[in-house]
Design a protein around this nucleic acid. Sequence first.
DNA 1: GTTAGATATTTTAAGCTTGTAATATCTGCC
DNA 2: GGCAGATATTACAAGCTTAAAATATCTAAC
Lengths: 153, 153
Amino acid sequence: MTARPVSKQRLRLWIRLLRAARAIEGEIRERLRREFSITLPQFDVMAALARRETGINMTELSRMLMVSNGNVTGIIDRLAAEKLVLRQAPANDRRSFIVRLTAKGAALFATIAKAHETWVDELLSEFDAAEAEALIGHLGSLAKGIHTEGAHA
Amino acid sequence: MTARPVSKQRLRLWIRLLRAARAIEGEIRERLRREFSITLPQFDVMAALARRETGINMTELSRMLMVSNGNVTGIIDRLAAEKLVLRQAPANDRRSFIVRLTAKGAALFATIAKAHETWVDELLSEFDAAEAEALIGHLGSLAKGIHTEGAHA
DNA sequence: GTTAGATATTTTAAGCTTGTAATATCTGCC
DNA sequence: GGCAGATATTACAAGCTTAAAATATCTAAC
């Protein structure tokens, strides 16, 4: 039994976590590009919008995706240029606007999401439901407690 | 008991994993910038070089960090401009070269690494040694089986 | 020794990402 | 109503990231 300090253990955990996330993320990014000619950030935005048909404004979108607010501007610009999303002006606040999927965007997302779920199922195939559930609990508690206001203005 | 299909479970796991990694990564990136004026990719490169005093060539570096080969060029360029690393021509292969930390780079890395380990210890503080060990095992097996040749030429 | 294919690195174009600053609008206090 | 501070978004500069193409060198087959 080596008396390895717990701080070294946590460091190893962090490195493993990061490597696992990068491996999976890289694989998904490559498949999205090859099969659907879309970037991962664009897919992430569409996924967020698909879960809320009423639309989401830029600030909340950046918080949900944990990226900076300025970042979202460019991604939405490119999605809008492809007519996959649109910006709507809400009645009550002229600073803001609501981003929604177009019909074209929703249809495309539905197709990609199906493939995406299959890929993830395959990439994480060695986890059965119970293991997945246990890991989900572990990781959920991990992300908490990090001050992480995602992108703070 | 909802009969949730395991594919949905794995999708939730992936989303949790990604969010946890992003939260921690974002926090570390911000602290590196604020306290040491260095970027996370630059720190990652220095960490790899610190573990191998004899130096590492570009291709292996990109493989270790799981980023594209072209990517490493720019990071090394900036580190070299700060005199933190240097490129050495090996005797036997004129296509390649070996990147090593300078004395200045090694000293700076030692300082930053100490702070970094403290941060990670704090950010993952809710995991004790046994939990960390268990998760490390889980995540290690996860990254395998992904074809992940990191950056393939 | 030539040459064909493999390997190591850089370059380039496009997109992502951040932090900071600028602009516009809103809200509440007076 | 006017003004101070908060909020929503965009603009900008610097750096990161990728995939694909270009260069240079090496290795092996002939």
